[in-house]
Design a protein around this nucleic acid. Sequence first.
DNA 1: GTCACTGCAAACCCTTTGCAACTCA
DNA 2: TGAGTTGCAAAGGGTTTGCAGTGAC
Lengths: 143, 143
Amino acid sequence: MMTPELIVKTLKELDLKVTPQRVVILKTIADNKNHPTAEEIHKAVIKNQPNIAVGTVYNILETFVNNGIVEKISSKGDKMRYDLVSETHHHLVSKNSNLIQDYYDDELTGLIGRYLNKNTIPGFKVSGFKLNISGEFNKSGKN
Amino acid sequence: MMTPELIVKTLKELDLKVTPQRVVILKTIADNKNHPTAEEIHKAVIKNQPNIAVGTVYNILETFVNNGIVEKISSKGDKMRYDLVSETHHHLVSKNSNLIQDYYDDELTGLIGRYLNKNTIPGFKVSGFKLNISGEFNKSGKN
DNA sequence: GTCACTGCAAACCCTTTGCAACTCA
DNA sequence: TGAGTTGCAAAGGGTTTGCAGTGAC
């Protein structure tokens, strides 16, 4: 849950003009843990900004991606999905559906991070990592 | 490097008809370590099968994906790329280009695998994983 | 001979782009 | 005010689809 104040602060720090469209879109991504598609974002945003154009949604998302606060992810060649950039976390990817769930595990992150620090990869400078864990969600309760 | 015999064997085991188009496409993916796009595959295949249609390339790739011998990957929302499913390996993803390189590291794979075996994830049954390591390739020699 | 597969081209749909109108700073 | 942003609609481009012809078994 991201407060409007924090969103405005984030945008200002990036020298991005604070428009209602940007605020609503960023809030939508921040509050939606399900990695929405551009279409889903547009549908959600239209409730607050009835005249917002799909193209605008894409433009704003692209701006966020370029400024490093949002990242594009994709599952199985479907449309792109958008994820708030935050602390290192991983993804649980369903083999049966298009569901992608965040998976936070500091111990696992630390384990991998320490390994990559000790064992350098020739010709490659590591700046980050993300583990995609594929499998199946149990029927009862996806959370 | 995959022998034609092995390719034929692979297709037969999956009850897929052995057509020249399928053989050539599978061989192209197997021999190309650079995760080709459908377009790149089409260009490569046309040398052997001058009349192959782009749609056919997509159809065959989709068949391979559905049969679990090829997987789709994507970098930064570009066109999809195709990767032979083989032993667990990881990806080095360039932040500056669209390059995705395979990264084999049994020690790292074992480390993560053992961790996921010990520490089960509530509500999720793990069947595999892949680590995406982002960073930059050095100018001199990408290999 | 049969049924799955291929070739072809049009359709699809997600995403990008150009431009006039608008608005945040 | 004016540089940057939005709305709109059309264009773009990768991928999918329908169907007639072909080929693997």
